[in-house]
């Protein structure tokens, strides 16, 4: 019942926003207007789909590969922190320094090193997602409930058993929560990486649409990028809820 009313409220809110959007576009209509209304946008996506589809595929691939690489590295380094706390802090600090560098600034450097190929985009996407996963997962791994750990100690469980049976399972919901933030970050990373050189991708369609002043293509590219981000978020949100129904963040449906 509560869910139903909140669903209605959300629908009403979105309806209002779309109406306002339509209104702004309608008031600014005319040839060469930088505004595109909702109906026009849908039509533009439909019309531009032959261009958008391969771009979407390219960006999605870069983002997915980068995300996978970033996650793998972050997970391995986080697991190291269980055993070697001090090393973990050190890795965390280094990762922070890396994360504080603006991606748009490292991208040209990577192009010089690796060329404008797939490696550069994957690396940027990996960097964008790596830190979020590392921080969340390594923190969760070392903040296991003290009594749960003592319970394992009392039954004489060796280190590996404690890690596999208690520490890691307790930290998995946090890992998946970090995926929800890291996956869109990888999409943005891949898009940004394309700006410094690529043959195709949504970053490229955005750039070329801007240069040729093709407003419908520009808007539809932005639309598809954000859709990709949202879908990647939603995927991990749903997966997290399915896998960890016992976790309090999944007890009531929030986002």
């Amino acid at each position: 019942m509560r869910r139903l009313t909140s669903g209605v409220a959300f629908a009403a809110l979105y309806g209002l926003l779309i109406f306002l959007w339509w209104l702004i576009a309608y008031l600014n209509r005319g040839a060469g207007s930088p505004f595109v209304g909702p109906v026009q946008l849908v039509r533009a996506v439909w019309d531009q789909w032959p261009v958008l589809q391969p771009s979407l595929a390219a960006t999605a691939e870069e983002a997915a590969l980068g995300f996978a690489a970033g996650v793998c590295l972050a997970v391995v380094l986080s697991l190291v922190t269980i055993r070697f706390r001090y090393l973990g802090t050190l890795i965390g600090r280094l990762a922070l320094v890396l994360y504080s560098l603006p991606l748009i600034a490292i991208a040209p450097l990577l192009v010089i090193w690796f060329g404008a190929g797939l490696v550069t985009k994957v690396t940027i996407a990996a960097l964008a997602s790596f830190f979020l996963v590392l921080v969340n997962f390594s923190t969760a791994l070392v903040s296991t409930d003290r009594q749960a750990l003592e319970m394992m100690e009392v039954i004489g469980a060796p280190f590996m058993t404690v890690s596999v049976r208690v520490r890691i399972p307790y930290a998995l919901p946090s890992l998946f929560a970090s995926f929800r933030a890291a996956a869109p970050a990888a999409v943005i990373g891949a898009t940004v990486a394309e700006w410094v050189g690529a043959n195709q991708g949504l970053g490229i369609t955005i750039l070329s649409a801007m240069q040729s002043y093709s407003i419908p293509l520009l808007w539809s590219s932005i639309f598809v990028v954000s859709l990709l981000s949202l879908v990647s978020y939603g995927f991990f949100a749903v997966l997290g809820r399915k896998l960890f129904p016992w976790h309090e963040s999944n007890a009531t449906s929030g986002a």
Partner: peptide
């Protein structure tokens, strides 16, 4: 323990 600490 003070809490039941069952693995959920």
């Amino acid at each position: 323990f003070q809490d039941a600490v069952l693995l959920p």
